[in-house]
Nucleic acid binder design. Sequence first.
DNA 1: TCCACTATCGAACAACCTGTTCGGTTATGA
DNA 2: TCATAACCGAACAGGTTGTTCGATAGTGGA
Lengths: 173, 173
Amino acid sequence: MVQEALVALILEKGYDAVTVTDIIDRADVGRSTFYSHFVDKQDVLFSNLDELGFLHLAPPARSGELFTFSLPMFEHVRERWPLVQALLGRRGGVGLVHARGEQLLTAVVRDELVAAGARVSASLDLLVMCVVGAFMGLLRAWVDGETTASPSELDAAFRAAVEPGVRAVLGQE
Amino acid sequence: MVQEALVALILEKGYDAVTVTDIIDRADVGRSTFYSHFVDKQDVLFSNLDELGFLHLAPPARSGELFTFSLPMFEHVRERWPLVQALLGRRGGVGLVHARGEQLLTAVVRDELVAAGARVSASLDLLVMCVVGAFMGLLRAWVDGETTASPSELDAAFRAAVEPGVRAVLGQE
DNA sequence: TCCACTATCGAACAACCTGTTCGGTTATGA
DNA sequence: TCATAACCGAACAGGTTGTTCGATAGTGGA
């Protein structure tokens, strides 16, 4: 109830404007009960994030194919639309959740590129940052309603933008 | 004095933890004086952002060359390092400033691609989101100290990641 | 059924932060 | 010299946070 209340309130007022009093009022929960389960407003946000399982999508690392996480992740997001909107959108607790998402995705992308033969180096890290940035940017714009594209269209756009560059870098090694 | 105080405090405690009382204390300014010049804590943040002039870099649109904004912007950022760190870094007022930066950059990139012959369409917008995301991701990671690369190395990494994909899309039209 | 245990409630509280008001003080500049 | 503007800081009301505490309601085993 508390988690759902926070999501609803974020979508109405934005994360910053939501107070603990708002949450317990909406969730119909006593104040002391709230603080016996959660440390913070932020704690509720993160409990939602954990439940979402942003990293349930470890890529099976097929031969030759890059960025296998992309399409499944877009589809997973569509299934949990309001929740992701509250977590990742501009009205949400942007900084923190976005940071956590970037962190998880960075590890996935980096492993994938290394598996594809990339040499571990500082310039690989820069490449990974670009790829992750492109994906997160697309995702953020999507949940904020800046595009109405489907998951497969988003996946195609993501691949079209970054795959040629990545393959060119991989080819040089 | 107020602007500098906010920047210093953000780098120490993070934007959220900074209070107006902290700012006026650090800046040695009376409370009423603060509120006669600024509406908000956020107002101070934005006044800093305006002063930085994030969009002073309208590209001269040379023939054939893409993303002319990239290198000058990385260099500009290096000249105002602590300020940009406070504005754009994870400790800063991430959501708002990052959003404003994305917005400005989106217009720049979109115009550049259209000038280079891209057809205006929904898929162009998706491409622009990827390019902007990659650039902002790189910038954010840089100011947060996740890489020690130089502006020209960052520029090279950005171009290597996205230019092949963009040119491939442009070539199809 | 009885009882111990646990979860919940809600009122009250201190501490803090915000944004405003107001009377007094200081600087500016014509 | 003096009118104007800027500044100061104390005080204030209103709101938020996180804690405490005694009372109430539900749970599961003996």
